[in-house]
Amino acid sequence: MAKSTRNSGKPWKPTEVSQLKQLAKGNTPTRVIGLKLGRTPAAIYKKAADEDISLAPTSQRPYGTKK
């Protein structure tokens, strides 16, 4: 079972949802999104599915690299 995080069991705030959308759009890995929001990767996947947010990479370029 995953470790408890600082927001475990707490409802999502609208600012957290918008931050999730922005990070997902920026190709950020799910694990990193979870660390930034204080949520487990499973919680990130669930909320993304609930909000119809795609976590699929927009390109195959690794996170954090630039042209």
Rank of each mutant, 00 (worst) to 15 (best):
K25N: 01
G64R: 12
A56D: 15
G26E: 15
A24L: 08
P57G: 09
G34A: 10
P57V: 01
W12L: 03
G9R: 06
S4T: 10
I33D: 05
P14A: 12
P57I: 05
A48K: 13
L55W: 11
Y45D: 12
I44N: 01
L35V: 12
W12G: 09
T58F: 03
L37T: 11
I33F: 08
G34T: 11
I53V: 04
L35W: 13
R61Q: 11
L55Q: 04
Y63R: 13
R6H: 10
L20A: 04
E51D: 03
R61Y: 09
A43P: 01
K13W: 07
L55P: 02
G64H: 11
S8D: 08
T28G: 03
K66F: 13
G9Q: 09
P11Q: 05
I33R: 11
A48P: 12
Q19S: 06
G9S: 02
M1T: 14
L23D: 15
S4Q: 07
G9A: 03
R61W: 05
K46Y: 13
R31T: 15
N27M: 14
M1E: 15
L37P: 08
Y45I: 13
T65F: 02
A24D: 07
A49E: 14
P29F: 00
T65A: 06
S4E: 04
P41R: 05
G64T: 11
A56E: 15
L23R: 14
Y45C: 12
K3P: 03
A48N: 09
R31S: 14
V17F: 00
S59R: 03
K66Q: 12
V32W: 00
P14L: 13
W12C: 01
K3I: 04
N7R: 14
R31A: 15
S8M: 04
K13E: 02
T15F: 00
R6K: 14
A42V: 01
L55C: 11
T58Q: 12
I44R: 00
T15R: 10
T40F: 01
L20K: 06
T40L: 12
P11G: 02
A43F: 01
T65W: 07
K47I: 07
L23P: 08
Y45G: 07
A2S: 07
I33C: 05
S18A: 07
A24Q: 09
P14C: 05
E51Q: 14
A49R: 15
N27F: 13
P14Y: 13
P11F: 09
T65M: 08
P11W: 04
L37M: 11
N7G: 08
T40C: 03
A49N: 14
A43K: 03
K21Y: 11
I33H: 05
K67F: 10
Q19E: 07
A2F: 00
K10N: 02
T40P: 09
T30A: 08
L35F: 13
K3F: 07
R31G: 13
V17I: 15
Q22Y: 00
